[in-house]
């Protein structure tokens, strides 16, 4: 608050009202509802529901299917996060370094941000089309029959590839702006202290990018967990079948297709806990994070 804040009592209430109303109705209510219904078992024919305590969670934890999805989600998240960060970092370092054409590269590398995930998924699906997709042909030329939608790991490959592609621009933009905020004189001091560019990168530039990196790490994990729904939905053509799924997709499948309200809610709560843990982790990092001023 500003030291000379206004003292009117009603105006601020009025100003807060729209935001508070919306988040109470569309955030707190559904969030609590999810927690509540995770303790109930819905009658499959819609005749009321009964309290079952932690049974939904127990079923979840014992479900091999759920564990498989969780494991795939972990793998998916790791791959997407690692590769999109690594590729974006490499490109940002190069774009920051070149003098000629830097702006053009910047534009070319960031515009994909604007493409919607399902549109990206559609492109991916076309590229791995079984009869005539280009990636399928590439694999074919290497002697491997790539079967998106039929072979579990092939489908996973497509999902991961598209998810990485879609996330590179954001990471690139953040890394580049992180790099550009390193003072020129700091790099020059390093040039006088250290002859090797590679060693300078790992001892000076990389540690200075750490705050950006930590931030992006969390952003990317969140992205891989939640924002890839559109990609997955399109790549597997809306057919869960035997395909790799992430936890969020399974919440959707069980809740809306399987009508398993309790189970889906329990999964939602598990995800909530996961996100909360991530947030706590993030705040810890921010607390510890070196303030470079």
């Amino acid at each position: 608050m500003k030291r000379a804040g206004f003292a009117q009592p009603w105006l601020p209430m009025l100003l807060l009202l729209p935001q508070l109303t919306i988040i109470v109705i569309f955030f707190y209510w559904p969030a609590l509802e999810a927690v509540r219904s995770s303790f109930y078992l819905e009658d499959p024919f819609g005749f009321g529901s009964s309290f079952v305590g932690l049974e939904n969670y127990q079923i979840l934890l014992e479900s091999r299917e759920y564990r498989r999805v969780a494991l795939f989600t972990l793998f998916f998240t790791l791959c997407v996060t690692f590769f999109s960060l690594a590729i974006a970092l490499l490109l940002a370092v190069k774009a920051d370094k070149v003098l000629r054409g830097a702006t053009s590269y910047k534009t070319l590398l960031m515009w994909v941000y604007a493409i919607a995930p399902p549109v990206a998924g559609l492109m991916g699906a076309m590229l791995v089309n079984h009869s005539n997709g280009m990636i399928t042909h590439l694999f074919g030329a290497a002697g491997y029959e790539f079967r998106n939608g039929l072979n579990y790991s092939d489908t996973a490959f497509t999902m991961i590839l598209v998810a990485i592609w879609k996330q590179i621009p954001v990471n690139f933009i953040f890394f580049l702006s992180g790099l550009q905020s390193i003072p020129v004189s700091l790099r020059e001091a390093a040039k006088i202290d250290n002859k090797s560019g590679t060693s300078r990168f790992w001892t000076i530039t990389f540690p200075l990018l750490a705050p950006t990196g930590f931030f992006l790490l969390i952003t990317n994990i969140t992205y891989a967990l939640f924002d890839t729904f559109g990609i997955i939905d399109v790549v597997i053509k809306g057919e869960p079948g035997n395909n790799p799924l992430t936890l969020v997709y399974k919440v959707y499948v069980d809740g809306f297709r399987g009508n398993d309200l309790g189970g889906s809610s329990a999964q939602s709560v598990v995800l909530m806990v996961l996100v909360l843990a991530l947030t706590v982790f993030q705040f810890r990092l921010i607390e510890k994070r070196i303030h470079y001023t």
Binding site: S185, K191, I192, D193, N194
Partner: peptide
Amino acid sequence: IDPADRNIAMVFQNYALYPH
């Protein structure tokens, strides 16, 4: 010759200390 090999030392206006 590379700056690092000129056997010089430089003090910058904003000091350019490595913050980490």
